[in-house]
Design a binder for these strands. Structure first.
Lengths: 259, 259
DNA sequence: CGCGCTATTGACAGGTCTCAATCCTGGTGG
DNA sequence: CCACCAGGATTGAGACCTGTCAATAGCGCG
């Protein structure tokens, strides 16, 4: 059972930035976010009603059960969705990266607690106008369907990890997931020697993986002892051989057949 | 590690029924399936190109990685989606009930192995024409989005169960999930004394819950000893007091705030 | 009756959690 | 400048839960 730190509480009550007016055609997530397939007209309408909000690391974006009168795309930074049991056990159920979508059209209250993992900038739309647009812009709803189906696939992969993998496999899986993602950002294939930055604390990794933070720490140390990773500070990780780490993840060797 | 039984293998190679021509307006899932919001014209078009297939208990509908040139709604029966690690550990990642949708538009190969849990009847559409319809019938894609978002919510609830609940809580959760569903079918609220039928074998429950079948069996026996359930044959369960079982599931008392 | 399959139960081993101490690092204030 | 502190991370010892291996029971069916 975890209690919230003083730092987190201070950040929760900090004022929320509202930033105006960046241009959509210069947006870093223009071709991956929910607006990806919109045409110029549609985009200029979106541009006229969008607004930005930013959140500091540890700051809550919304609490489960609270009213949420906007939906948003993550522009920069990392946020996470968590669920909690009565006694405080918490499980991360979503890791939101740039271009990912937050909130559910048509739903008034948040189903999950969303917290900024790093500094996060959101591109927000009030829920009502967005719901209307969903009806009028098929590009928008088609793209959201596509993204939701991808998220469902990711959730199912995650379920396999939670239900059936050992602690060691969970850690190896998590590191390879991050490595693949960083490679994708650099438009390269993952492989060979790689250097990555873990986006989560040990505690957040534990919540992601369904472990305790002690077990996370121990397994990371074990992978280090076995020469599969080297640590560079608390967050930096050097992978001398990506393939060897994948072997430890328990996944099928050729997991890449999904279109 | 599980091996497939002889019975399963025999059923895999058994011929597949193809049934023709039931009328959509008499369909038991008319108002809950992907076609729920379609108008009469749209429905008559769907009716003209749909076809039925049925599967026996244990029979594979599709194997992960295989070509799948149709999508389908479950009309009657129960099917499940599973993923498998190299060494045979398997995790169920979807439980498909009447009106649930199988397959992903635009995807050529199945991402998961789908197996009939009971006798299953599917209402199928070839993938190509269905993809076209998705573009032309907004009702269809909106409904699919709605269903996919619901499935994502279910998957996230499932992740909490897999990552953070004890074996006892997992079993109690599973029984309450089934009980809620059976109550919903009878259009009643779950509560008080209830009688249900488990749709899965102990092994399938284990794959659903991320446990071994021995642990499932032991925890069911423990709940029985504690008077929370009574068994009636292998599949029948009597719940003397639904609320007491919910207490054992670890969930928040009022989990019902989601719209 | 014997066979195949599902389910139950036991004994034991091992993996992960719990509780606790210690270390490390960056930031703060004297 | 240096001591101190807070929070994150590491490490250890022991307990407990769940998995593994194995034997047995119950049931339907040929």
């Amino acid at each position: 059972m975890r209690t919230r730190t003083l730092t987190q509480i201070k950040q929760d009550i900090a004022p929320i930035d509202v930033i105006g007016g960046a241009r959509c055609d210069e947006c870093p997530i223009r071709y991956r976010a929910v607006c990806a397939h919109c045409n110029a007209d549609e985009l200029s309408y979106l541009e006229s009603i969008k607004f930005y909000r930013s959140f500091e690391p540890g700051q809550a974006i919304v609490w489960a059960g609270d009213r949420m009168d906007f939906v948003a795309s993550v522009v920069t930074g990392v946020a996470n969705l968590t669920q909690t049991l009565e006694d405080g056990r918490t499980q991360m159920v979503g890791l939101l990266l740039p271009s990912d979508f937050l909130g559910r059209p048509g739903r008034e209250r948040a189903a999950y607690t969303a917290v900024a993992t790093s500094r996060v900038v959101l591109c927000c739309f009030r829920r009502k106008p967005f719901d209307d647009m969903m009806r009028e812009m098929p590009q928008l709803s088609h793209r959201l369907l596509e993204m939701t189906l991808d998220e469902l696939d990711a959730a199912r992969e995650w379920m396999l990890l939670l239900g059936r993998k050992t602690a060691r496999e969970k850690i190896a899986s998590f590191i390879t997931i991050i490595a693949r993602r960083e490679a994708a950002l650099l438009k390269r294939l993952p492989g060979g020697r790689m250097q990555i930055e873990l986006p989560l604390t040990r505690e957040a990794m534990a919540d992601y993986l369904g472990l305790t933070l002690e077990t996370v720490s121990r397994q990371i140390s074990a992978l280090k002892r076995d020469g599969l990773i080297q640590l560079q500070g608390k967050r930096g990780v050097l992978l001398p051989d990506f393939a060897r780490l994948v072997d430890e993840s328990g996944d099928d060797a050729d997991g890449g057949w999904i279109s």
